[in-house]
Amino acid sequence: YAQWQARWGHCEILDGIGSAEMFHIYITNYPGDVVPGSLGRTVPGYEARVVGPDGQDVPDGEMGRLWIRGESAALCYWRDQEKSRAVFKGDWVVSADLFTRRDGYYFYAGRGDDMLKVRGMFVSPLEIEDCLCRHAAVQECAVVGVDDGAGLTVPKAFVVLREGHAASDDLVSELQQHAKTELARYKFPHHVSFVDALPRNDRGKVVRRLLV
């Protein structure tokens, strides 16, 4: 965001999020009220909660699943009663997205089914990816969980390099050290593979299961 602002001046990026279940965007940044890294505040007419595994709202700064309520919500999934029961809880729609909330702003932390459990603690691949992408050699990357051979899950990064940078063991060590410096040490990618491109679906989203 800072690079965008430096190049284009006062042209703001208004990130937001919506879903098919809600038929509308329900959280967004607003002109003159942009918090970089966040998806903004709730849109008028919608309510949001960040909910823990116990079904209770989590304190600000803690990660939980996003619940949304608004008049545009769907009633159910067509001919899928089991999924409908899991997602539609009264007036609330339970998304698959994980968020934190700070001062009324919502920060995306990844999808619940993408989360890794490393040393007994949940880790968002997005957090590791964002860290690695801040390294000058990295164009883009994707992180998945792999077995370390002892039955434990560890992060593995698939990295696309920027032009002018070459894959090497030294660069692997450099990227790992970069992650250790910026993140909790257990979150660093234990394995790094360099690839020409990341697998994507027809909507441009990375298909992580093809990397496992």
Rank of each mutant, 00 (worst) to 15 (best):
P44M: 04
R7W: 10
V144N: 01
V87E: 02
D103F: 02
F194I: 02
P31C: 06
A74G: 15
L175G: 06
S72I: 00
V138L: 06
D169Y: 05
P31F: 11
R69Q: 15
Q177S: 13
F188P: 01
G151N: 11
D33G: 02
K180L: 15
G40C: 02
L132D: 08
T181F: 14
L175S: 12
L126V: 14
Y30L: 13
D202I: 11
Y108S: 01
R200V: 15
V192K: 07
H191N: 07
R41G: 02
H135I: 13
D147V: 03
V123T: 01
F188S: 14
W67H: 14
A96F: 04
P59M: 02
W67E: 13
K83P: 00
T100M: 12
A86Y: 00
K187P: 02
S124T: 00
G37E: 08
G90I: 07
N29C: 12
L132Q: 08
I25V: 07
A179C: 15
I68K: 02
E140Q: 11
A142D: 05
P36M: 04
I68N: 08
G204W: 06
R101W: 08
F88G: 04
W8E: 08
Q176P: 00
V192C: 03
A136W: 01
F88W: 11
A197H: 14
D15N: 09
A157V: 03
S124W: 05
F107R: 07
D33L: 13
G9R: 09
A96W: 01
S193K: 12
G18Q: 07
M63T: 10
